[in-house]
């Protein structure tokens, strides 16, 4: 069994939002407010024209972190949110009672209510649409012009993601919460 994670060369990100649109098309995410599995965070510019802080304008692509110790999973009353054998955090819509507790519990704003199924939805690492079909990349990764994302098996020391993480320093978001997130932002 793999333990899937994603490394992000986030300095490559140009905020083109190809990943967002690819995810919507790949996963049939409705084009409604609040419906997104993936996003790119931007900050308002710091400084006064013409002295804008370039660092303040770094883009932060993000999605579900597939936490190894996922608060959303802990709080789910019906185990609708569960870990897949490959270490991905998944929602089983047949068991979701739409209590939205998990949405409150996720520290990363990764979840939303899908108006079609009226259950909670979020990034699946494209496991049903792509990995199940033998693809080895996610839609957001494949489409990215500057190849921000590297998806792969953290348990395989030869995988590109493992090699990258061995070679580079990285940071994870809100690590102090003990969620053990599996998105790695390469510095």
């Amino acid at each position: 069994m793999a333990r899937y994670g994603m490394a992000l060369n986030y300095k490559n990100c140009i905020n083109c939002r190809a990943c967002e649109s690819a995810c919507k098309e790949e996963n049939g995410v409705l084009l409604l407010p609040d419906h997104y599995r993936i996003w790119v965070g931007v900050k308002e510019a710091e400084g006064e024209y013409p002295n804008i802080s370039i660092a303040s304008q770094t883009y932060h692509p993000s999605q579900c972190q597939h936490c190894e110790n996922a608060p959303c999973q802990l709080v789910c009353p019906t185990n609708a949110t569960h870990y897949s054998p490959d270490g991905m955090v998944m929602v089983d819509p047949t068991r979701c009672i739409l209590c939205t507790y998990c949405i409150n519990a996720c520290p990363y704003d990764a979840r939303y209510v899908d108006q079609r199924t009226m259950t909670v939805d979020k990034c699946t690492f494209c496991s049903d649409t792509r990995l199940a079909n033998g693809e080895t990349t996610t839609a957001c990764q494949a489409t990215c012009p500057t190849k921000v994302r590297v998806f792969g098996d953290l348990d395989d020391p030869n995988s590109e993601i493992s090699q990258l993480l061995a070679k580079h320093e990285y940071r994870r978001v809100k690590e102090h919460l003990g969620t053990k997130p599996k998105l790695f932002y390469i510095l």
Binding site: R17, A18, S21, A22, E26, A139, A142, T143, P145, K147
Partner: peptide, 20 residues
């Protein structure tokens, strides 16, 4: 779905938001 086709040296296996 439209996926990038990696074969094209000009587009280097990408589709932008508009392409998608």
């Amino acid at each position: 779905k439209l996926d990038p086709n990696p074969l094209f040296p000009k587009s280097r296996n990408m589709l932008c938001a508009r392409g998608n």
